[in-house]
Structure formats: C-alpha cells, structure tokens
Simulated assay, not measured.
Amino acid sequence: MATDFAYEIQDLRGTLDSIRAVTDEDALRARIAELSEQAAQPDLWDDQDAAQAVTSQLSHAQSELERIRSLLARIDDLEALVELGAEEDDAATMVEAESELVSLRKALGELEVRTLLAGEYDQREAVVTIRAGAGGVDAADFAEMLLRMYLRWAERKGYPTQVLDTSYAEEAGLKSVTFEVKVPYAYGTLSVEAGTHRLVRISPFDNQGRRQTSFAAVEVIPLIEQTDHVDIPESEIKVDVFRSSGPGGQSVNTTDSAVRMTHIPTGIVVSMQNEKSQIQNRAAALRVLQSRLLVVRQQEQDAAKKALAGDVKASWGDQMRSYVLQPYQMVKDLRTGHEQGNPSAVFDGEIDDFIEAGIRWRRQQQDV
C-alpha cells in the first residue's frame, strides 16, 4: 500500500505544533538570553561548579531550540522531496522520502516524550545508586552489569557522568555504586529506571552450571541545587573517615580520604571514596545526602505522592524489569510490557525504548 505522504506530513506538523506549544519557545529563548548573560560574566569561573551548571544549562537549552528548528526544516525538506519525486515519477526519491519519514517519526516521538517530563524535579541532574540484592555473587555481578549499561547509555548520548562511590564485592562485581549523570532532565528521564531489576541466567560462578536468579536495586534521586536550601545542622551529621578500597578489599589509598556521612535523625548513610582528597569526598557526600533529604522532604510535604526514590527491596515479587538470558533471551519491562529480544544490546546501553515506554506509562498512571 502506497504511503499517503500528504496525510503523514500533516500528522508530523501537528505533532511538532503540539510539542512547540508545550515547550514555549519564547520562554526558552528568554532562558537562553538569561543564561548567555550569566555565561558572559568575567567572574563566572570563580565558582567552577556554578559555572559548569550555567554552561551545561545553556548548551542544553540551545540544543532544545535547535532541535525544534531542525525538525521543522526537515519536515519542509521532506515535503519538497515528495513533490519532486512525484513530479518526476522517481522511485528512488520516494524510497528516500519513506526513509526520512520513518526517521522523522522517531525523532518527533523522542521529543514528544521530553514534553512529558513536567515533574517538580524532572529538569534536574540525577544521582543513581545501584545495589546488589538477593542472589549472592551473581547479584553483585549483575549490579556491575547495570552500571555499565547506564554508563554506556550516557556515553552514547554524550552525557557526562561521574562515579562518586564504589563498594566492591569480595568475589566479583559490586555491592553498591553511586554515580551522577550531569545533564538537565537526567532525573526525569532516568527516574523510571528506579526499582528492582531481575536477572535470570546460567551462573558463571556455579561449577555445576545451574540457572540462577539474582536481583539489583536501582535508586534515582534529583541532584541538589543551591536554591533548594536543604540545611543540615552539624549536630545532625556523624562523619567517619577511612581508607578507600578496591576490588577484593585491597586498599587503594594510603591516607584516610574516604568519607562516610550519617544523618542521625533519619539514619541515611552516604559514603564517598572516589575523589582524591577527604575534603572533596566530604563535599560530594554532603551533596548526595542533601539530595536524599530533598526526597524525604518531598515525601513529607505530600504523603499521597509516590516516593521519588521508591522503596526498593531487590527481591522476589517486586521486580519492574526482567533480563532473561536462559532458557531464552528476552528483556521485558513488567510495568509497560515493552520487551526486547537482544539482551546484549540492552546491556550495551540501548535502553531508550524502555525509558520512553516508562515515561509514557508513568504519565498514563498520573492521568488515571
């Protein structure tokens, strides 16, 4: 059946118009002007963290505006291409137009998903923690596989990341790891990954080659910003220092540079050991502790809302996604029903379809 290009192009324009209405291009241009003015200040880099935040936000806002302009131009070009192909009855041109139509549908779908990220903290950068759950050494190995999956996903998109803390398991893999994804909307995007992930495979650590089920928990929280004012009295914090350790428990630092920070009233514990100095680790730990307390404050303000980070048990009965490598190969999200028959690609960071399905599913749940 021949493609009805007139209808398809009209549909593309309608989708883009809806996206532009939600995006509010005038507000986006005003935001770019404001950030450009801040970026031009001569003392900008006196505070490197603040400077990086400004330049990152500016780059992201400019990219968003350019993305809309580019898609509008591509739709115009597609329309011209179809007219040319029809006039000259050129089959090759129509095949090219068909390919561009498919590409435009995908690009608009991705941008449309971004408009669904309208939560209070969705624009924030993200702090992600992965913890090995039930399943022993296989669970620790699974936690490391998930870390690589998310870092590869970020790398594919050019998103900067920073591993803040790594706790290695004795035999293989990780007990836990915490890292930042330092790009706007990282929290809104990755928050649908929070929950219990389940792996089924023939265990490489079992001499008898038996099938093993293991679990890992993923927690995603928004990164604290200076405007949040999450003040923590010194009297409420207990700080312990220790030496950083590597795989197998060996010491990788000859000084007590690693920091464990405990918030006494809530019992929240944050460890940092990946920076070079105790001062840097202390600052990083305080930032993540403030971010976690921000989540607690949000829960207290509106107990009816689902917790931003979630209560993740990492065991049977509450998994949100299964990665099955044996007896068949399948990755399936149990909330959205989205599945992928190539686990290797998923573990290599190809998780956009799962994330997009999760964002759409979450919005549907909110609208019910």
Rank of each mutant, 00 (worst) to 15 (best):
M94W: 13
S99M: 10
E100D: 07
S103C: 02
A107Y: 01
L108N: 09
E110A: 12
E110Q: 14
L111A: 09
L111D: 04
L111H: 08
V113N: 10
R114L: 09
T115P: 05
T115K: 13
L116E: 01
L116W: 10
L117E: 06
A118Y: 05
G119Q: 12
E120A: 12
Q123V: 08
R124F: 01
E125F: 01
E125S: 13
V127S: 12
V127H: 09
T129R: 12
I130C: 04
A132E: 01
G133L: 00
G136W: 11
D138C: 01
A139H: 03
A139F: 03
A140D: 06
D141V: 08
D141Q: 10
A143Q: 10
A143W: 08
R148T: 13
M149F: 01
M149R: 03
L151K: 00
L151S: 02
R152Q: 04
A154Q: 06
A154L: 02
A154F: 07
R156S: 14
R156C: 08
G158I: 15
Y159E: 05
P160H: 00
P160V: 00
T161M: 00
Q162H: 07
V163R: 13
D165I: 05
E170Q: 15
E171H: 09
G173M: 09
K175S: 07
S176N: 09
T178R: 03
T178C: 11
V183F: 03
Y185W: 06
A186Y: 02
A186P: 01
Y187S: 14
L190S: 15
V192K: 10
E193G: 09
A194N: 12
A194F: 06
A194H: 11
T196F: 06
T196K: 04
T196R: 02
H197L: 10
H197E: 12
R198S: 04
R201N: 09
R201F: 03
R201S: 14
I202V: 14
S203Q: 06
S203L: 08
P204L: 02
F205A: 02
D206S: 07
D206P: 06
Q208E: 08
